[in-house]
Design a protein around this nucleic acid. Sequence first.
DNA 1: ATCATCATGTAAGGGGTTACATGATTTA
DNA 2: TAAATCATGTAACCCCTTACATGATGAT
Lengths: 190, 190
Amino acid sequence: MLGYALLGLLARGDRSGYDLTQGLKDPVGYFWHAQHSQVYPELARLEGAGLVTHSVVEQAERPDKKVYRQTDAGRAALRAWLTADTEVPRKRDELVLKAYSMWQTEPARAADMLRAHARAHAAHLAEFERRLAEVTLRAGTELHDPRSPWFGIQAVLRRGIGYEREYRDWCEWLAGALDGAGQALSPTTP
Amino acid sequence: MLGYALLGLLARGDRSGYDLTQGLKDPVGYFWHAQHSQVYPELARLEGAGLVTHSVVEQAERPDKKVYRQTDAGRAALRAWLTADTEVPRKRDELVLKAYSMWQTEPARAADMLRAHARAHAAHLAEFERRLAEVTLRAGTELHDPRSPWFGIQAVLRRGIGYEREYRDWCEWLAGALDGAGQALSPTTP
DNA sequence: ATCATCATGTAAGGGGTTACATGATTTA
DNA sequence: TAAATCATGTAACCCCTTACATGATGAT
Protein backbone atom coordinates (compact mmCIF):
# COMPACT_ATOMS: atom_id res chain seq x y z
CA MET A 1 0.00 0.00 0.00
CA LEU A 2 2.70 2.47 1.01
CA GLY A 3 4.59 1.31 -2.06
CA TYR A 4 1.78 2.58 -4.28
CA ALA A 5 1.74 5.89 -2.46
CA LEU A 6 5.45 6.27 -3.23
CA LEU A 7 4.97 5.17 -6.85
CA GLY A 8 2.18 7.73 -7.15
CA LEU A 9 4.53 10.47 -6.02
CA LEU A 10 7.33 9.26 -8.28
CA ALA A 11 4.94 9.33 -11.25
CA ARG A 12 5.07 13.11 -10.85
CA GLY A 13 8.84 13.24 -10.94
CA ASP A 14 12.03 11.82 -9.44
CA ARG A 15 12.53 12.30 -5.73
CA SER A 16 14.71 11.28 -2.82
CA GLY A 17 13.48 9.34 0.17
CA TYR A 18 13.54 12.52 2.18
CA ASP A 19 11.43 14.38 -0.39
CA LEU A 20 8.99 11.48 -0.59
CA THR A 21 8.53 11.59 3.16
CA GLN A 22 7.82 15.31 2.88
CA GLY A 23 5.44 14.64 -0.01
CA LEU A 24 3.55 12.26 2.22
CA LYS A 25 2.46 15.25 4.24
CA ASP A 26 1.05 17.59 1.74
CA PRO A 27 -1.70 17.35 0.49
CA VAL A 28 -2.06 13.63 -0.25
CA GLY A 29 -0.50 12.87 3.11
CA TYR A 30 -3.69 14.00 4.70
CA PHE A 31 -5.12 10.70 3.47
CA TRP A 32 -1.94 8.61 3.48
CA HIS A 33 1.05 9.46 5.63
CA ALA A 34 4.26 7.67 6.68
CA GLN A 35 7.43 8.21 8.67
CA HIS A 36 10.86 8.21 7.09
CA SER A 37 11.64 5.02 8.99
CA GLN A 38 8.99 3.32 6.91
CA VAL A 39 9.83 5.04 3.62
CA TYR A 40 13.52 4.05 3.37
CA PRO A 41 13.00 0.30 3.78
CA GLU A 42 10.02 0.43 1.43
CA LEU A 43 12.11 2.12 -1.27
CA ALA A 44 14.68 -0.66 -0.91
CA ARG A 45 11.88 -3.21 -1.29
CA LEU A 46 10.55 -1.46 -4.42
CA GLU A 47 14.03 -1.40 -5.89
CA GLY A 48 14.45 -5.09 -5.14
CA ALA A 49 11.19 -5.72 -7.01
CA GLY A 50 12.45 -3.68 -9.97
CA LEU A 51 9.80 -0.97 -9.68
CA VAL A 52 12.23 1.88 -9.02
CA THR A 53 15.93 2.61 -9.51
CA HIS A 54 18.10 5.16 -7.80
CA SER A 55 21.14 7.29 -8.53
CA VAL A 56 23.27 9.05 -5.96
CA VAL A 57 23.39 12.81 -6.26
CA GLU A 58 26.35 14.45 -4.57
CA GLN A 59 25.66 17.82 -3.05
CA ALA A 60 28.01 20.45 -1.76
CA GLU A 61 26.99 21.79 1.65
CA ARG A 62 24.21 19.18 1.93
CA PRO A 63 24.40 15.45 2.53
CA ASP A 64 24.45 13.28 -0.60
CA LYS A 65 21.08 11.90 -1.57
CA LYS A 66 19.60 8.97 -3.47
CA VAL A 67 17.18 10.12 -6.13
CA TYR A 68 14.62 7.50 -7.07
CA ARG A 69 12.99 7.05 -10.47
CA GLN A 70 10.06 4.89 -11.46
CA THR A 71 10.76 2.07 -13.95
CA ASP A 72 8.34 0.93 -16.67
CA ALA A 73 7.45 -1.98 -14.38
CA GLY A 74 6.77 0.53 -11.62
CA ARG A 75 4.43 2.53 -13.83
CA ALA A 76 2.63 -0.66 -14.84
CA ALA A 77 2.28 -1.73 -11.19
CA LEU A 78 0.80 1.65 -10.29
CA ARG A 79 -1.75 1.42 -13.12
CA ALA A 80 -2.72 -2.13 -12.24
CA TRP A 81 -3.36 -1.04 -8.65
CA LEU A 82 -5.39 1.97 -9.81
CA THR A 83 -7.84 -0.21 -11.73
CA ALA A 84 -7.99 -2.99 -9.13
CA ASP A 85 -10.91 -3.24 -6.72
CA THR A 86 -10.73 -0.98 -3.69
CA GLU A 87 -12.13 -2.03 -0.35
CA VAL A 88 -14.33 0.48 1.45
CA PRO A 89 -12.04 1.32 4.36
CA ARG A 90 -12.91 0.59 7.97
CA LYS A 91 -12.30 3.70 10.00
CA ARG A 92 -11.13 4.25 13.55
CA ASP A 93 -11.91 7.58 15.14
CA GLU A 94 -11.29 8.13 18.82
CA LEU A 95 -13.55 11.18 19.07
CA VAL A 96 -16.58 9.35 17.68
CA LEU A 97 -15.82 6.46 20.03
CA LYS A 98 -15.85 8.95 22.89
CA ALA A 99 -19.11 10.43 21.63
CA TYR A 100 -20.65 7.00 22.01
CA SER A 101 -19.82 7.06 25.73
CA MET A 102 -20.25 10.79 26.31
CA TRP A 103 -23.53 10.25 28.18
CA GLN A 104 -21.26 9.00 30.99
CA THR A 105 -19.61 12.37 31.53
CA GLU A 106 -20.37 16.03 32.27
CA PRO A 107 -22.14 17.53 29.24
CA ALA A 108 -20.58 20.99 29.64
CA ARG A 109 -17.06 19.62 29.64
CA ALA A 110 -17.73 17.39 26.67
CA ALA A 111 -19.21 20.34 24.80
CA ASP A 112 -16.05 22.40 25.39
CA MET A 113 -13.94 19.58 24.04
CA LEU A 114 -16.10 19.27 20.95
CA ARG A 115 -15.91 23.00 20.28
CA ALA A 116 -12.11 22.78 20.42
CA HIS A 117 -12.28 20.02 17.80
CA ALA A 118 -14.69 22.06 15.72
CA ARG A 119 -12.14 24.88 15.71
CA ALA A 120 -9.34 22.50 14.69
CA HIS A 121 -11.38 21.15 11.80
CA ALA A 122 -12.42 24.65 10.76
CA ALA A 123 -8.72 25.57 10.62
CA HIS A 124 -7.96 22.56 8.42
CA LEU A 125 -10.90 23.48 6.23
CA ALA A 126 -9.65 27.04 5.77
CA GLU A 127 -6.18 25.75 4.93
CA PHE A 128 -7.52 23.34 2.30
CA GLU A 129 -9.68 26.03 0.77
CA ARG A 130 -6.71 28.34 0.56
CA ARG A 131 -4.73 25.60 -1.16
CA LEU A 132 -7.48 24.84 -3.63
CA ALA A 133 -7.66 28.53 -4.60
CA GLU A 134 -3.88 28.54 -5.07
CA VAL A 135 -3.97 25.34 -7.14
CA THR A 136 -6.82 26.69 -9.25
CA LEU A 137 -4.70 29.70 -10.18
CA ARG A 138 -1.58 27.69 -10.88
CA ALA A 139 -3.19 24.86 -12.82
CA GLY A 140 -5.24 26.99 -15.18
CA THR A 141 -7.17 24.93 -17.74
CA GLU A 142 -5.26 21.79 -16.71
CA LEU A 143 -7.34 21.69 -13.55
CA HIS A 144 -10.20 20.11 -15.46
CA ASP A 145 -8.07 17.73 -17.50
CA PRO A 146 -8.21 14.24 -15.96
CA ARG A 147 -4.81 13.47 -17.47
CA SER A 148 -3.08 16.30 -15.65
CA PRO A 149 -1.37 15.75 -12.27
CA TRP A 150 -3.21 18.84 -11.02
CA PHE A 151 -6.39 16.86 -11.32
CA GLY A 152 -5.23 14.46 -8.60
CA ILE A 153 -4.23 17.30 -6.29
CA GLN A 154 -7.61 18.91 -6.78
CA ALA A 155 -9.43 15.65 -6.06
CA VAL A 156 -7.61 15.17 -2.77
CA LEU A 157 -8.12 18.79 -1.73
CA ARG A 158 -11.85 18.65 -2.45
CA ARG A 159 -12.15 15.48 -0.42
CA GLY A 160 -10.31 17.17 2.42
CA ILE A 161 -12.59 20.17 2.24
CA GLY A 162 -15.74 18.05 2.32
CA TYR A 163 -14.41 15.89 5.12
CA GLU A 164 -13.37 18.78 7.34
CA ARG A 165 -16.56 20.72 6.77
CA GLU A 166 -18.67 17.73 7.72
CA TYR A 167 -16.56 16.97 10.78
CA ARG A 168 -16.71 20.58 11.97
CA ASP A 169 -20.48 20.67 11.55
CA TRP A 170 -20.92 17.42 13.47
CA CYS A 171 -18.77 18.70 16.36
CA GLU A 172 -20.80 21.90 16.52
CA TRP A 173 -24.10 20.07 16.36
CA LEU A 174 -23.05 17.68 19.14
CA ALA A 175 -21.72 20.49 21.34
CA GLY A 176 -25.03 22.31 20.92
CA ALA A 177 -27.01 19.19 21.71
CA LEU A 178 -24.94 18.64 24.85
CA ASP A 179 -25.38 22.06 26.40
CA GLY A 180 -28.90 22.40 25.05
CA ALA A 181 -30.07 20.10 27.81
CA GLY A 182 -27.44 21.17 30.32
CA GLN A 183 -29.71 23.44 32.35
CA ALA A 184 -33.11 22.94 30.72
CA LEU A 185 -34.06 19.31 31.27
CA SER A 186 -31.76 17.36 33.53
CA PRO A 187 -33.66 15.43 36.20
CA THR A 188 -30.66 13.11 36.67
CA THR A 189 -28.09 15.72 37.71
CA PRO A 190 -25.81 14.46 40.52
CA MET B 1 -7.82 2.29 23.04
CA LEU B 2 -9.72 -0.92 22.36
CA GLY B 3 -10.02 -1.27 26.12
CA TYR B 4 -12.02 1.96 26.27
CA ALA B 5 -14.26 0.80 23.46
CA LEU B 6 -15.05 -2.32 25.50
CA LEU B 7 -15.55 -0.31 28.69
CA GLY B 8 -17.90 1.97 26.77
CA LEU B 9 -19.99 -1.02 25.74
CA LEU B 10 -19.93 -2.51 29.24
CA ALA B 11 -21.16 0.82 30.64
CA ARG B 12 -24.42 0.00 28.87
CA GLY B 13 -24.71 -3.43 30.45
CA ASP B 14 -22.91 -6.71 31.11
CA ARG B 15 -21.81 -8.67 28.08
CA SER B 16 -19.74 -11.65 27.02
CA GLY B 17 -16.67 -11.40 24.81
CA TYR B 18 -18.72 -12.70 21.94
CA ASP B 19 -21.41 -10.06 22.44
CA LEU B 20 -18.79 -7.34 22.74
CA THR B 21 -17.30 -8.39 19.43
CA GLN B 22 -20.76 -8.18 17.89
CA GLY B 23 -21.29 -4.79 19.55
CA LEU B 24 -18.12 -3.59 17.88
CA LYS B 25 -19.95 -3.81 14.59
CA ASP B 26 -23.08 -1.91 15.13
CA PRO B 27 -23.29 1.12 15.11
CA VAL B 28 -20.22 2.28 17.03
CA GLY B 29 -18.17 -0.35 15.22
CA TYR B 30 -18.41 1.78 12.15
CA PHE B 31 -15.90 4.04 13.86
CA TRP B 32 -14.11 1.45 15.99
CA HIS B 33 -14.06 -2.23 15.13
CA ALA B 34 -12.12 -5.29 16.33
CA GLN B 35 -11.90 -9.03 15.79
CA HIS B 36 -12.66 -11.53 18.51
CA SER B 37 -8.98 -12.52 18.51
CA GLN B 38 -8.24 -9.04 19.78
CA VAL B 39 -11.20 -8.80 22.16
CA TYR B 40 -10.52 -11.89 24.29
CA PRO B 41 -6.92 -11.02 25.21
CA GLU B 42 -7.95 -7.40 25.86
CA LEU B 43 -10.67 -8.53 28.28
CA ALA B 44 -8.07 -10.60 30.13
CA ARG B 45 -5.85 -7.51 30.30
CA LEU B 46 -8.71 -5.36 31.62
CA GLU B 47 -9.49 -7.97 34.24
CA GLY B 48 -5.83 -8.09 35.24
CA ALA B 49 -5.95 -4.32 35.68
CA GLY B 50 -9.08 -4.61 37.83
CA LEU B 51 -11.33 -2.72 35.42
CA VAL B 52 -13.71 -5.60 34.76
CA THR B 53 -14.71 -8.89 36.40
CA HIS B 54 -16.37 -11.91 34.90
CA SER B 55 -18.70 -14.69 35.89
CA VAL B 56 -19.30 -17.89 33.98
CA VAL B 57 -22.84 -18.43 32.78
CA GLU B 58 -23.72 -22.03 31.95
CA GLN B 59 -26.10 -22.47 29.08
CA ALA B 60 -28.04 -25.51 27.91
CA GLU B 61 -27.76 -26.08 24.16
CA ARG B 62 -25.19 -23.27 23.85
CA PRO B 63 -21.56 -23.12 24.94
CA ASP B 64 -20.91 -21.65 28.37
CA LYS B 65 -19.98 -18.01 28.36
CA LYS B 66 -18.07 -15.51 30.45
CA VAL B 67 -20.14 -12.45 31.19
CA TYR B 68 -18.07 -9.36 31.94
CA ARG B 69 -19.03 -6.50 34.23
CA GLN B 70 -17.40 -3.12 34.69
CA THR B 71 -15.92 -2.38 38.12
CA ASP B 72 -15.93 1.05 39.79
CA ALA B 73 -12.31 1.39 38.71
CA GLY B 74 -13.39 0.56 35.17
CA ARG B 75 -16.06 3.26 35.21
CA ALA B 76 -13.52 5.76 36.56
CA ALA B 77 -11.02 4.82 33.86
CA LEU B 78 -13.65 5.33 31.17
CA ARG B 79 -14.56 8.78 32.52
CA ALA B 80 -10.92 9.83 32.79
CA TRP B 81 -10.39 8.86 29.17
CA LEU B 82 -13.52 10.74 28.08
CA THR B 83 -12.27 14.03 29.49
CA ALA B 84 -8.64 13.56 28.39
CA ASP B 85 -7.31 15.30 25.29
CA THR B 86 -8.10 13.64 22.00
CA GLU B 87 -5.71 13.75 19.07
CA VAL B 88 -7.15 14.66 15.70
CA PRO B 89 -6.75 11.32 13.95
CA ARG B 90 -4.55 10.83 10.90
CA LYS B 91 -6.55 9.01 8.27
CA ARG B 92 -5.61 6.48 5.65
CA ASP B 93 -7.94 6.06 2.71
CA GLU B 94 -6.95 3.96 -0.26
CA LEU B 95 -9.54 5.46 -2.60
CA VAL B 96 -8.34 9.02 -2.01
CA LEU B 97 -4.77 7.84 -2.49
CA LYS B 98 -5.85 6.38 -5.82
CA ALA B 99 -7.60 9.61 -6.75
CA TYR B 100 -4.27 11.38 -6.36
CA SER B 101 -2.82 9.15 -9.09
CA MET B 102 -5.93 8.76 -11.21
CA TRP B 103 -4.56 11.08 -13.90
CA GLN B 104 -2.33 8.11 -14.76
CA THR B 105 -5.22 5.90 -15.83
CA GLU B 106 -8.22 5.74 -18.18
CA PRO B 107 -10.77 8.34 -17.03
CA ALA B 108 -13.80 6.26 -18.07
CA ARG B 109 -12.68 3.26 -16.06
CA ALA B 110 -11.86 5.35 -13.01
CA ALA B 111 -15.27 7.01 -13.27
CA ASP B 112 -17.00 3.60 -13.24
CA MET B 113 -15.08 2.64 -10.15
CA LEU B 114 -16.01 5.85 -8.39
CA ARG B 115 -19.69 5.39 -9.24
CA ALA B 116 -19.55 1.94 -7.66
CA HIS B 117 -18.13 3.52 -4.52
CA ALA B 118 -20.78 6.23 -4.62
CA ARG B 119 -23.43 3.50 -4.64
CA ALA B 120 -21.78 1.71 -1.71
CA HIS B 121 -21.69 4.89 0.35
CA ALA B 122 -25.26 5.73 -0.61
CA ALA B 123 -26.29 2.31 0.68
CA HIS B 124 -24.50 2.93 3.99
CA LEU B 125 -26.15 6.31 4.19
CA ALA B 126 -29.61 4.83 3.69
CA GLU B 127 -28.91 2.20 6.34
CA PHE B 128 -27.78 4.81 8.88
CA GLU B 129 -30.79 6.99 8.16
CA ARG B 130 -33.08 4.01 8.67
CA ARG B 131 -31.37 3.30 11.98
CA LEU B 132 -31.63 6.86 13.15
CA ALA B 133 -35.35 6.87 12.41
CA GLU B 134 -35.71 3.63 14.38
CA VAL B 135 -33.67 4.98 17.29
CA THR B 136 -35.69 8.21 17.30
CA LEU B 137 -38.88 6.21 17.76
CA ARG B 138 -37.47 3.95 20.44
CA ALA B 139 -35.63 6.57 22.45
CA GLY B 140 -38.50 9.06 22.70
CA THR B 141 -37.62 12.10 24.80
CA GLU B 142 -34.41 10.43 25.99
CA LEU B 143 -32.93 11.08 22.57
CA HIS B 144 -32.20 14.67 23.56
CA ASP B 145 -30.96 13.88 27.05
CA PRO B 146 -27.13 13.93 27.12
CA ARG B 147 -27.22 11.53 30.05
CA SER B 148 -29.06 8.82 28.18
CA PRO B 149 -27.20 6.03 26.37
CA TRP B 150 -29.42 6.75 23.36
CA PHE B 151 -27.65 10.06 23.04
CA GLY B 152 -24.37 8.29 22.23
CA ILE B 153 -26.01 6.07 19.65
CA GLN B 154 -27.55 9.09 18.01
CA ALA B 155 -24.24 10.95 17.94
CA VAL B 156 -22.48 8.07 16.19
CA LEU B 157 -25.31 7.59 13.69
CA ARG B 158 -25.35 11.27 12.80
CA ARG B 159 -21.62 11.22 12.24
CA GLY B 160 -22.03 8.18 10.03
CA ILE B 161 -24.76 9.90 8.03
CA GLY B 162 -22.69 13.03 7.48
CA TYR B 163 -19.61 11.04 6.59
CA GLU B 164 -21.34 8.81 4.07
CA ARG B 165 -23.23 11.64 2.45
CA GLU B 166 -20.05 13.63 1.97
CA TYR B 167 -18.15 10.61 0.65
CA ARG B 168 -20.92 9.75 -1.80
CA ASP B 169 -21.05 13.33 -3.09
CA TRP B 170 -17.29 13.44 -3.57
CA CYS B 171 -17.32 10.16 -5.52
CA GLU B 172 -20.08 11.46 -7.76
CA TRP B 173 -18.38 14.80 -8.30
CA LEU B 174 -15.09 13.10 -9.20
CA ALA B 175 -16.77 10.61 -11.54
CA GLY B 176 -18.49 13.50 -13.30
CA ALA B 177 -15.26 15.45 -13.55
CA LEU B 178 -13.51 12.40 -15.04
CA ASP B 179 -15.94 11.67 -17.82
CA GLY B 180 -16.74 15.33 -18.32
CA ALA B 181 -13.39 15.74 -20.04
CA GLY B 182 -13.39 12.30 -21.65
CA GLN B 183 -14.12 13.74 -25.08
CA ALA B 184 -13.89 17.49 -24.58
CA LEU B 185 -12.98 19.68 -21.65
CA SER B 186 -16.20 21.00 -20.24
CA PRO B 187 -16.10 22.96 -17.00
CA THR B 188 -17.65 20.84 -14.26
CA THR B 189 -17.75 22.09 -10.72
CA PRO B 190 -19.81 20.80 -7.77
C1' DA C 1 24.37 28.26 21.94
C1' DT C 2 20.41 25.87 20.48
C1' DC C 3 17.08 24.67 17.24
C1' DA C 4 15.36 23.50 12.51
C1' DT C 5 16.50 21.53 8.04
C1' DC C 6 18.60 18.21 5.11
C1' DA C 7 19.70 13.34 4.69
C1' DT C 8 19.65 8.19 5.59
C1' DG C 9 19.38 4.47 8.02
C1' DT C 10 18.27 0.48 12.15
C1' DA C 11 15.70 -1.58 16.12
C1' DA C 12 12.17 -2.40 19.42
C1' DG C 13 7.61 -2.77 20.36
C1' DG C 14 2.47 -2.19 19.84
C1' DG C 15 -1.86 -2.83 17.50
C1' DG C 16 -4.37 -5.27 14.23
C1' DT C 17 -5.52 -8.98 10.69
C1' DT C 18 -5.61 -13.64 9.26
C1' DA C 19 -5.37 -18.20 10.15
C1' DC C 20 -5.42 -22.26 13.24
C1' DA C 21 -8.21 -24.85 16.61
C1' DT C 22 -12.61 -26.95 18.57
C1' DG C 23 -17.43 -28.12 18.78
C1' DA C 24 -22.63 -28.00 19.38
C1' DT C 25 -27.06 -26.37 17.33
C1' DT C 26 -30.07 -24.33 14.07
C1' DT C 27 -31.39 -22.90 9.45
C1' DA C 28 -31.43 -23.14 4.32
C1' DT D 1 -25.66 -31.62 3.38
C1' DA D 2 -23.79 -27.32 3.89
C1' DA D 3 -23.85 -23.03 6.05
C1' DA D 4 -24.39 -19.83 9.71
C1' DT D 5 -24.59 -18.82 14.74
C1' DC D 6 -22.85 -19.21 19.32
C1' DA D 7 -18.61 -19.41 22.05
C1' DT D 8 -13.56 -18.96 23.33
C1' DG D 9 -9.15 -19.08 22.73
C1' DT D 10 -3.80 -19.10 20.46
C1' DA D 11 -0.14 -18.04 16.97
C1' DA D 12 2.02 -15.92 13.12
C1' DC D 13 2.60 -12.06 10.65
C1' DC D 14 2.36 -7.29 8.84
C1' DC D 15 2.15 -2.45 9.30
C1' DC D 16 3.20 1.41 11.75
C1' DT D 17 5.11 4.38 15.52
C1' DT D 18 8.75 5.68 18.47
C1' DA D 19 13.23 5.81 19.58
C1' DC D 20 18.15 5.26 18.61
C1' DA D 21 22.04 6.77 15.64
C1' DT D 22 24.97 10.14 12.90
C1' DG D 23 26.37 14.53 11.07
C1' DA D 24 26.64 18.90 8.37
C1' DT D 25 24.73 23.73 7.59
C1' DG D 26 21.99 27.79 8.46
C1' DA D 27 18.91 30.52 11.32
C1' DT D 28 17.36 32.62 15.94
